[in-house]
Write a protein that binds this DNA or RNA. Structure first.
Length: 225
DNA sequence: ATTTGATCATGT
DNA sequence: ACATGATCAAAT
């Protein structure tokens, strides 16, 4: 994939297809459900659109600085889930600024691919929506930064075990691990090294709902003009 | 163990 | 009904 234009054109070409149709074109086998293949939809779209980064800590399209995210929605266009962004660093990040953080860099340009994915719809029949490119507005950027600074302060001051999913307004910190027994290094209440459950940053569904709404309004205006 | 891709499933 | 906490797979 060479340019953003080509990437968006490619998205346009697959919009409206079912996941079954796309998988069949790519000769990918379709799991019965996502219980044991939670990342299958994301990986299918990476393959379809030519994302290169694999499981490296890089944007999906490094040359374009674009991150690809599928977003499960219902028929009203509302997100069905929060959106995972990246792992939260729990050590060695005192005095890192929001602008320097991996999460900020990842969110500078996101290619959202909505998928009509209500649980009652069989996986193969779920429909790919119209993808769009998003860059955070000034107010979105500020909201993210404020939540991030608050969460990072708690992490660096040893308050990680007080943080729960409900903490942030738009950004939340939740477990991101194989199971509840996984351990990674962090900072304890007295500054001592401790082991705790690995966490990740997630965008709350209300935040991605607002992004979708804005895009919907924009698309509507373009149709009318 | 860690990062990527996320959704599952239970508690509230 | 919804969000939080728990979990699954592959690549490295």
């Amino acid at each position: 994939m060479k340019t953003t234009e080509q990437l968006l054109q490619h998205c346009h070409n697959i919009a409206g297809l079912t996941l079954g149709q796309l998988a069949s074109q790519l000769k990918v086998t379709i799991p019965a459900d996502l219980k044991r293949d939670k990342g299958w939809v994301g990986q299918l779209l990476e393959l379809a659109l030519g994302a290169e980064a694999g499981s490296q800590a890089l944007p999906d399209f490094p040359a374009l600085g674009i991150e690809l995210k599928t977003l499960p929605i219902d028929q009203q266009g509302k997100p069905l889930e929060s959106t995972y962004v990246c792992v939260a660093p729990l050590t060695g990040v005192t005095s890192q600024s929001w602008q320097q953080s991996w999460i900020c860099q990842k969110l500078q340009q996101v290619l959202w691919v909505p998928i009509l994915a209500e649980r009652q719809i069989p996986l193969a029949e779920r429909i790919i929506g119209t993808a769009f490119l998003w860059q955070p507005s000034a107010s979105e950027q500020l909201a993210l930064q404020q939540d991030w600074e608050e969460l990072m302060e708690l992490i660096t001051l040893g308050g990680i075990d007080q943080i729960r999913g409900a903490h942030g307004k738009v950004l939340q910190l939740r477990p991101k691990a194989a199971d509840s027994k996984a351990l990674t290094s962090a900072v304890g209440a007295n500054g001592e090294p401790i082991k705790t459950l690995p966490r990740g940053f997630y965008l709350k569904a209300s935040f991605t709902a607002a992004i979708l709404q804005r895009q919907f309004n924009l698309a509507e205006q373009q149709v009318k003009s």
